[in-house]
Nucleic acid binder design. Structure first.
Lengths: 164, 164
DNA sequence: CTGCAAGTTGAAGTCGGCTTCAGGTCAAGC
DNA sequence: GCTTGACCTGAAGCCGACTTCAACTTGCAG
């Protein structure tokens, strides 16, 4: 028994339940994150499991993954049922590590910043804050930061730290 | 005395010393972050203090500020000399707070993630990770994270990698 | 004086994650 | 059967922080 008609959601219903805009859902579909059946009239109808996939994607984003990375991670989980504890915990542990790394780097930044209060130098060659020689600082065009700002504020992509 | 000719840097020299591309320096100028004198032939010549301004901007970016915010912060520091300890510490304290907030949110996220390992639910309505009711989660389209990704050479950030 | 690297400009392109728009179609209540 | 609102599509726009491009000018070594 596949999903009955009652289990299928229109894009509007899915949008309401997931908190995402219909346009975002269509975008997710283009990105290969979710999929939908179609009615005879070509309208999307989503299975309930789609809600779980969306939950996963949103969680992945919170951890700092791009949609592309989320898609990769998603491919490792079952499509039509809730992941087992083992399956989910494998993912969660990885995410945990990511978060720890991010926190670590922020701690480092904080320490350097504190040092800079003392030195007041702000020179390119000497300032520890500027020269923080960690991966984040040296990271190429792919490097991004996960930054939280006040909701009232505008969007805020991280520094591009591009080296060329 | 003002800067002598020897103290003035071409855009290429400034780029080499700051690690930024010339195009980025021109962009910073358009954004009002730095400025330059011009030669008779209209080429930019930068005072050495510009290096300090750039250092400040890059540091600001690391803390998660946009260039616009960096400009605002920059306006509070002296243009032609190193900031005093008091001046710098006022700025640094603010940045410190930002970092602390970011760390706090990551810690929260981590706790929720840990909880999710136990529950394995990943349901939109119940998953604490998805529903993390803090500002970051609730923030609309403007919400962004400051995410550190591995540079090209680094270890794979692949989710769910070999942790199972 | 010549030759060429390095500089100049404005305009357009890039990336990610969407939103918005225009113009047309579908589903369902009355 | 008609109306209305939800849905469809592809294309374009948006944000920030840049880069890239084309076409042209400067500055300096030889």
């Amino acid at each position: 028994m596949g999903p009955t008609r009652h289990d299928l959601l229109t894009i509007g219903q899915l949008a309401a339940r997931s908190g995402l805009a219909p346009s975002a859902l269509r975008y997710y579909e283009r990105m290969g994150l979710i999929s939908a059946e179609r009615t005879a009239g070509n309208q999307r109808r989503y299975a309930r499991a789609t809600l779980r996939r969306i939950a996963f994607v949103r969680a992945a984003q919170r951890v700092g993954l791009s949609l592309e990375e989320a898609r990769t991670a998603l491919d490792r989980l079952p499509e039509d049922r809730a992941p087992s504890t083992a399956e989910w915990s494998a993912v969660a542990v990885t995410w945990h590590e990511r978060i720890d790394r991010q926190i670590e780097e922020l701690e480092l930044l904080k320490r350097k910043l504190t040092g800079c209060i003392g030195c007041g130098c702000l020179s390119l060659s000497r300032c520890a804050l500027y020269n923080a020689g960690d991966r984040a600082a040296a990271a190429g065009p792919g490097a991004r930061y996960l930054l939280t700002r006040d909701p009232a504020g505008g969007p805020e992509p991280g520094p591009a730290e591009g080296t060329g």
